[in-house]
């Protein structure tokens, strides 16, 4: 096998490897949520939560996850207020998205509080993650 073939093989296997790394992280998160009392998770419920809007106290207007993460999960989002660009949420175009447990929990905490004014429950996080994973 020459170097080019080897390189092609590595490049083909790499996305599968990162996808499975993120798959493992998501499964671990879901298991942890179940351990704290959540029932089965449902992508449809997750999709509804994703679109659910609340009045953000400081902005004085209704916001949802889509306000900053774009209406298309495969697209790059942009923060409503700061203009910061946010990498796509869909693992189909951004396989690195869910490969770090601590990062997932950090942003759930921040964004649930910012968007809904409270932390998300384990059930809600599981539903949201199941929905996002399917994208």
């Amino acid at each position: 096998m020459n170097i080019t073939n080897l390189l092609i093989c590595v490049l083909c296997v790499l996305p599968i490897y990162t996808a499975s790394a993120s798959e493992q992280v998501i499964q671990q998160r879901l298991a942890d949520y179940r351990a704290t009392g959540a029932a089965d998770f449902d992508a449809t419920r997750g999709a509804a939560l994703w679109q659910q809007s609340h009045v953000q106290a400081k902005l004085g207007k209704a916001v949802s996850c889509r306000s900053c993460h774009s209406t298309q999960l495969q697209h790059t989002g942009q923060h409503l207020r700061t203009g910061k660009l946010i990498e796509p949420m869909a693992p189909s175009v951004n396989p690195e998205r869910f490969n770090d447990s601590k990062k997932i929990e950090k942003w759930f905490k921040r964004n649930c509080k910012w968007t809904w004014g409270r932390e998300c429950t384990a059930q809600e996080k599981g539903d949201l993650l199941t929905f996002l994973q399917s994208q």
Partner: peptide, 12 residues
Amino acid sequence: LEDHFGENAELD
């Protein structure tokens, strides 16, 4: 950090 110039930037 929970109100970091209008954003929530809490850390562990």
